[in-house]
Design a protein around this nucleic acid. Structure first.
Lengths: 266, 266
DNA sequence: AAACGATGTTTCACAGAATAAAACATTGAG
DNA sequence: CTCAATGTTTTATTCTGTGAAACATCGTTT
């Protein structure tokens, strides 16, 4: 275990910690922040001053309390609607692809369609339905079905009241059976399908939870059924669930890596 | 000139400048960033490293290029949909209220309604329609009419195809006259109304431009007509236009005062 | 293929900047 | 009016951020 070299600039890191603290609980004063972060008042004061000059925090002039500033919002909008998700998922998708050697898909729901936000191509090139930027059905495909399962009941009803196209002989088009499938997905907390959207393909999908606790996306491992045995079924599932958990954690307001937090300064 | 104390922490300020640079032009490498910011490569490298550990920037592992990270998005969403606008406008509204001693309103459009995002009460308490969080009409009120004037033609058509309630005898309910009024607003670049929503009240409204160049909100000065003379008409108008420009500038991707840091002292 | 140039990464010594502590100012409560 | 709590400012010391330059890596050119 070679030491990971610490290039971290402490002052900057403290400033970022301050921002996180303000995001976590806004409208705090200097003293309160200093106490909860284990910093001195003067330090917090100067950090806030610096952040304020650039609009990253704003100060209520009367009450001398601080909150996140408008510039955070301006920069955040640069990322676009799904920006946070995409940026959070990017490295995790890379890792998942490397682990499984299979295709990896990040899918969200748009109304009654699924939408492929991003993909990673596995080692074995196989032509699958998933393609970044592509709309797909909700009632077929590992990630899509999972999103449907966790969607609002009204969305499920609306989706099931549409004609259900059969993409392969294995596509579930029977509404009662589809509802059963959705129920099983919710019970399991994941979804594994075979051949239902692409003939000869499997898909192992896990749910991603947004900052508000709702399920906002799915990440899935997909490949050729020829390479899908019991052993891989297990490993892919675990990998997908771990990846989903990792992304969900990153999207949570508290952020990643609580473990290494500096608390030992007592 | 006596410098009013510089509490700025240089390291933090540089990090923030780096974030701004990445927001301005993403997918830059270390060298490119160092050059454009006038920093050394090693410094930029370490700043990026620090920012990356907290997810504020993300690195494309293959191409070694950096972009804003997901954490920016997570924090940004904390501000809510209109967060950036609200936070950008807050101090400007305070200043405008102090300048004019009148009520100040920040209004956006929501479909075919107006919505009061925030208000500041002037010295003279007067009961007006505007109240934070309140929906109002689009065809009456200084800020609302201005928003309608700059809305998409389809929105204007839709708004005019609805019944036009007369809030006072002065409310414009004639569709042809209303279209004329909208045209004049666009020609002027501002809007001044009297008594059209609240009897006995004036409103001087100016348009706020978002980062994408479209008009996203209005800021207005409102009060009792009894205090509205030619002189105040001019001063309020100038103040409103200045305030709108200031907020628009803050919302632009390049941010405020690139060339000269004009710090308004109170 | 070898040499080059451009870019990212790492090391290191030193100036000066960030920091903690404590004094000072201000505000609000009892 | 006094006290307590908070924000602001000052200052001395140390430790950290910094620039320069060496090193590594990669893609391109000759």
């Amino acid at each position: 275990m070679t030491e990971p070299k610490d290039y971290k600039i402490a002052a900057v890191d403290r400033a970022l910690a301050l921002l996180e603290a303000l995001a976590d609980r806004p409208d705090q004063g200097v003293t309160s922040l200093a106490k909860s972060l284990g910093m001195t008042k003067s330090l917090v004061f100067r950090l806030l001053h610096t952040l304020e000059e650039r609009g990253f925090v704003s100060r209520d002039p009367e009450r001398a309390e601080y909150a996140l500033g408008y510039r955070i919002g301006v920069l955040g909008e640069r990322l676009g609607k799904d920006g946070a998700l995409l940026y959070a998922a990017r490295p995790v998708m890379d890792a998942l692809r490397d682990q499984t050697s299979e295709n990896v898909n990040l899918v969200v729901r748009e109304g009654l369609k699924s939408y492929v936000l991003a993909t990673r191509a596995g080692r074995h090139s196989i032509r699958l339905f998933a393609q970044a930027g592509r709309n797909g059905p909700l009632h077929a495909g590992g990630g899509s079905l999972l999103l449907l399962a966790y969607a609002d009941p009204s969305v499920i009803d609306a989706a099931l009241s549409q004609p259900l196209e059969a993409f392969t002989p294995y596509t579930i088009t029977d509404r009662a059976k589809l509802r059963q499938a959705l129920e099983r997905i919710r019970a399991n907390g994941y979804n594994i399908v075979l051949n239902d959207l692409d003939e000869g393909a499997f898909s192992v999908a896990a749910p991603i939870t947004g900052a508000d606790g709702t399920i906002i996306a799915s990440i899935s491992v997909a490949g050729a059924v020829a390479r899908f045995d019991e052993e891989r079924r297990e490993s892919h599932l675990k990998a997908a669930l771990d990846a989903a958990a990792e992304i969900s954690e990153r999207l949570s307001i508290h952020g990643p890596g609580e473990s290494g937090l500096v608390k030992s300064r007592a």
